[in-house]
């Protein structure tokens, strides 16, 4: 990663790896995916799994203001000052891709107010299969789909499925009930993604978010190396 890249200017502009004071900023991981695929539940599970070992914070991008943030607050996965909601004006994909200024500010304010941070999770509002994060906002992105959304989604592809740094196929426990073929989803995902990793996950089963948490730990290790 681009640790050495850092502008001469007095404050970070977007993807700079350093904060205005020269210290290394937090790793930023984006989570995107269609409505109801389990992004917020995955973020909540990651917070519970990682909060003892990492200093972390969450930025949510809701379609309707603050709903996801409020879910996380209710679940008390992190202290409230570590959760910020960005309002997106009915266009959640714009706020994570085309005009990332509000999200960058939210991330920087979290680092200023509760930092130093190791990790910021940026959750997109539920959107469609084309929504991806700008590289100016996040260092890595996770795309979350679920078995109930149709087992043909990996085959259909799209930028999220094909290019995300990690693809999560969520709610595998529901596969028998919705008639989704997990083996076929895994094979289609592999075909669409080549070497990029895929995790099949059920947050209700033993193991839960563990595999995804390990992937995050690996990214953190690379970031701070």
């Amino acid at each position: 990663m681009h640790l050495d890249h850092h502008l001469e200017s007095s404050a970070a502009v977007s993807a700079d790896a350093r904060r205005a004071d020269g210290s290394r900023r937090a790793l930023r991981i984006g989570l995107g995916g269609p409505v109801g695929s389990g992004k917020t539940a995955t973020v909540a599970a990651l917070c519970r799994a990682l909060r003892e070992e990492l200093s972390l914070a969450v930025v949510t991008n809701d379609i309707y203001t603050r709903e996801d943030a409020e879910f996380l607050l209710r679940e008390a996965v992190l202290p409230p000052e570590r959760i910020t909601a960005v309002e997106t004006g009915a266009c959640p994909h714009t706020a994570i891709r085309d005009d990332i200024s509000a999200n960058l500010e939210a991330v920087e304010d979290l680092e200023d107010e509760v930092g130093p941070l190791d990790l910021v999770l940026v959750e997109s509002g539920g959107d469609n299969l084309t929504a991806t994060f700008s590289r100016g906002l996040v260092d890595a992105q996770v795309f979350v789909i679920d078995v109930a959304g149709g087992d043909d989604i990996p085959r259909k592809g799209g930028p999220g499925v094909a290019t995300a740094d990690l693809l999560i196929v969520n709610k595998t426990d529901l596969a028998p009930y919705v008639g989704s073929d997990l083996a076929r989803m895994a094979a289609d995902a592999k075909a669409a993604r080549g070497e990029l990793p895929v995790v099949l996950q059920s947050l209700r089963s033993e193991g839960g978010v563990g595999e995804v948490a390990d992937w995050v730990r690996g990214r953190i290790a690379a970031w701070t190396a």
Binding site: T88, D99, A102
Partner: peptide, 9 residues
């Protein structure tokens, strides 16, 4: 499309 946040207001 100038990325200055106006879309959310």
């Amino acid at each position: 499309r100038f990325p200055a946040g106006g879309h959310a207001h």
